[in-house]
Amino acid sequence: MNGAPTGPTLPGTPPAADKSTEPAATATDAADQPHRRGIRSFVVRAGRMTVGQARALAELGPRYVLPHDPATTDLVAAATSQARASGQNYAQTVLEIGFGMGSATAHIAALKPDTLFIGCEVHEPGVGALLKLARIHELQNIRILQHDAVEVLRDMVAPGTLHGVHVFFPDPWHKKRHHKRRLIQPPFVRLLAERLAPGGYLHLATDWQPYAEQMLEVLSAEPLLRNTAEGYAPRPAYRPLTKFEQRGLRLGHGVWDLVFERIAT
């Protein structure tokens, strides 16, 4: 681990943000200004939470949901320190970006109880769904930030502190005029690579071939990363097949995994 956090110990659930007062995204292209947040790769959609999701968020949120706090400049150290105070010790920390309804996250966390998984997801029903799964499967090794992952990485994650990053099925933004919204762009990949410890891995997956091709091109051009495969990687055993993915495979659709490793410098 990386010692004591330089910011304050992470408290419980933050108060819900008033989205009506949030500034609108600018027209600045994030690919040109990597340290500013301009065009976003996601749209916050209204979603109805189930009773079970809402109950899980209310009851487990204070323990598992962490606030976006730029004063916490080493999220990994702060989160592992918090877990240690509760009697849990983790050898590694993996960040997952956009976990959706959390089924893959819960599956992988159950397989790797010695790893702390920090998930970023902006959609509240997904946060509630993952917390519900954490309760069902008695998972201790999950923490959540309900916030934009780009800002979390930029503001809160110290360089060289993550052992892995998962980005499964990000929005492909199919239309050409929307390609600038795609998450996997050179400045963001550089940010990811800088936050990985040497030997840490970046695992991406998509079911949209043009996006897979862009991902491969962008990751291959990042000098801090090396491909662990010749092109696309076989699906690692820990990543489960989603129901949507299984249906697509039955229909002949492809799925592409990419696994890159942070090189030592």
Rank of each mutant, 00 (worst) to 15 (best):
D32Q: 12
T161D: 10
F168H: 15
F169L: 14
P187V: 04
P67S: 01
L249W: 06
A221E: 06
R63G: 07
D171S: 11
I142C: 12
L145M: 15
K19L: 14
V51Q: 13
L192S: 05
A54R: 14
I108C: 07
V94R: 12
A104E: 13
A106D: 07
E121S: 02
A134D: 02
L183T: 09
T9M: 15
G47L: 03
F188N: 11
Q82G: 13
R182F: 04
R154Q: 12
A79G: 02
T72Y: 01
G52L: 01
R40L: 11
P172L: 01
A58W: 00
R226C: 11
Y238P: 01
H35G: 08
R235I: 09
M49T: 04
P70W: 02
R226A: 09
Q146P: 06
T265N: 00
L225S: 05
A129I: 02
E245R: 05
Q146M: 10
H107M: 04
R177P: 07
V157E: 03
P67E: 02
A233H: 01
G119P: 12
A129P: 01
G100M: 08
M101W: 06
T50W: 00
P210C: 08
S220W: 00
P34T: 05
V218L: 10
G12F: 04
K176L: 08
I144V: 15
Q53W: 05
Q140Y: 07
A31Y: 04
G87Q: 06
T105Q: 07
E217V: 00
L116V: 04
A104I: 11
R182T: 02
K176Q: 11
T80W: 00
L116S: 12
G52Y: 07
V76N: 05
P198G: 03
T80H: 00
Y201Q: 15
V165C: 13
G126Y: 06
Q88W: 12
A17L: 14
R247V: 11
P8Y: 02
F188S: 06
P15V: 01
D74S: 12
